[in-house]
């Protein structure tokens, strides 16, 4: 049936591709653009593994058809840091070992990053709320919450005036 030309800006780069109407955005990102960092865990909007930043907001890319995203600007896990580097948040996930198998991790990073973008010093409760739509089966969430807290501290520390009294 209907096939559509799609232009997307992903991680700052413009991509063009074709998709049938029924292709979800996550399938387009993964299968057509080969950006496989975004994962699919349930394809019905519950697990959050497919989270991406769409026009500045974290959303589930399995709940949108690719054709709907034509013209949109998207950030995926591959775009959270300059190639070859890790963002402060990613580095904090490493520091606290906030992952095990790594499958939910891209979605967790997206959910946490969009929290920190809006709220530089979130409480534990705010962190838990922000990642509550992302299921993780490995970690029990503890080290993820620790990672986001650590990132918040580091990010705010970057902006804080230097203290001389230690």
């Amino acid at each position: 049936m209907s096939e559509h030309d799609i232009t997307l800006k992903v991680n700052g780069r413009t991509y063009r591709g074709k998709a049938s109407a029924r292709m979800t955005l996550v399938d387009f990102l993964r299968d057509e653009l080969r950006l496989t960092g975004t994962h699919t865990g349930c394809e019905h909007g519950v697990c959050g593994a497919c989270s991406i930043i769409f026009e500045g907001q974290a959303i589930r890319s399995c709940l949108m058809f690719a054709v709907q995203a034509d013209g949109a600007s998207i950030t995926t896990v591959e775009g959270l840091a300059e190639p070859g580097t890790l963002s402060v948040l990613q580095d904090c996930f490493w520091e606290t070992h906030a992952l095990q198998c790594g499958f939910c991790t891209p979605g967790m990073l997206i959910a946490s990053q969009t929290l920190l973008d809006k709220n530089r010093l979130p409480t534990d409760e705010e962190i838990r709320e922000a990642i509550s739509g992302n299921l993780c089966r490995c970690t029990g969430y503890k080290q993820i919450v620790d990672a986001v807290k650590l990132a918040a501290q580091r990010l705010s520390g970057l902006n804080a005036p230097v203290k001389s009294d230690g």
Partner: peptide, 14 residues
């Protein structure tokens, strides 16, 4: 951890 954080793990679906 690093490869997963960068989104460059290779799972079978990939």
């Amino acid at each position: 951890d690093r490869r997963f954080l960068a989104g460059s793990g290779v799972f079978v679906a990939d």
